[in-house]
Design a protein around this nucleic acid. Sequence first.
DNA 1: CAGCAACAATTGCAATCGCAACAAATTGCG
DNA 2: CGCAATTTGTTGCGATTGCAATTGTTGCTG
Lengths: 156, 156
Amino acid sequence: MEDYQDYRLFQELSLLLDHADRLVLRQFRLNTLQYNALLLLDPDEGWRLTDLSERLLCERSTVTRLVDYLESEGLIARSPDPGDRRSQRVTLTAAGVARRREAQAAIEEAIHRRFSVLNGEEEQQLIAMLKRLRAVVSAEIAEKETASPEASSTPS
Amino acid sequence: MEDYQDYRLFQELSLLLDHADRLVLRQFRLNTLQYNALLLLDPDEGWRLTDLSERLLCERSTVTRLVDYLESEGLIARSPDPGDRRSQRVTLTAAGVARRREAQAAIEEAIHRRFSVLNGEEEQQLIAMLKRLRAVVSAEIAEKETASPEASSTPS
DNA sequence: CAGCAACAATTGCAATCGCAACAAATTGCG
DNA sequence: CGCAATTTGTTGCGATTGCAATTGTTGCTG
């Protein structure tokens, strides 16, 4: 009955959170996706672009341009994959570690302030609900995407 | 302590929901914003573009182009505001009502399926938490936006 | 009434991102 | 081995959106 109210609230809060994050990250010359990538990356262990795209829930082409930008900022370094000449390994530079540390401090301060309106028990409930929702929506997407990209068949 | 987990889950679910909605709305040649606009509009009572932008949480320029598109699809009509030559009034056409009805049926079916993993009590809790979060984040944005856009002053 | 600030809508521009097409490299199967 | 299918990353293109500047209108104030 309140499904729709949940949905609208969730949608609106998404927009607001995106906007608020942009305001925070702007001073570090990062957008949300770039920041999330920095969080994942590591100075030692190199990530492949394809793995980054799967983790960040975006297209490979988006990761290409994301990596182009972070590289131009000197925050990451591309290096060839020793075992596969198609692949590249992306690692954090010292500047990347520093920039991530600054941005992370600002973002996590903001996050903490926002979620301080919930108590510990509520957070647990929220996490549990969000996980269940994530599972359903993931399944819905998987179902829809295996349905259309192939099989223009309608076979007998 | 779990603030960050909440946040990441929320962010990920936002991406998934956006993606899932796009898959549903694509068949009606609408994106999420266009659909939300159709929900607001009415065959009789005309909306001003500025009011739409505030309701949809986007820029006025975005609404201009949104209305351009919906008009080109024949779903809405622009008419001059009788009392103010600066304004325009936007109303739903019959085709707009029909398109909205189809899209709404599909979307609400999907929403209902997604939120069926929560029971009534959980939905109430979720709504309450989302409302509190919305309030904090709104306040945060308002604070940040009144801080920077003006006052490059640092006066004596 | 003249001037000016505020407001409605639009346009230009840049940033962002998904999708499709592509080149290079790798894998697998006959 | 040899060739087809798959995989990795890139590029072209279009769609979407925010921000700043602009035009035309309104309303307030001296």
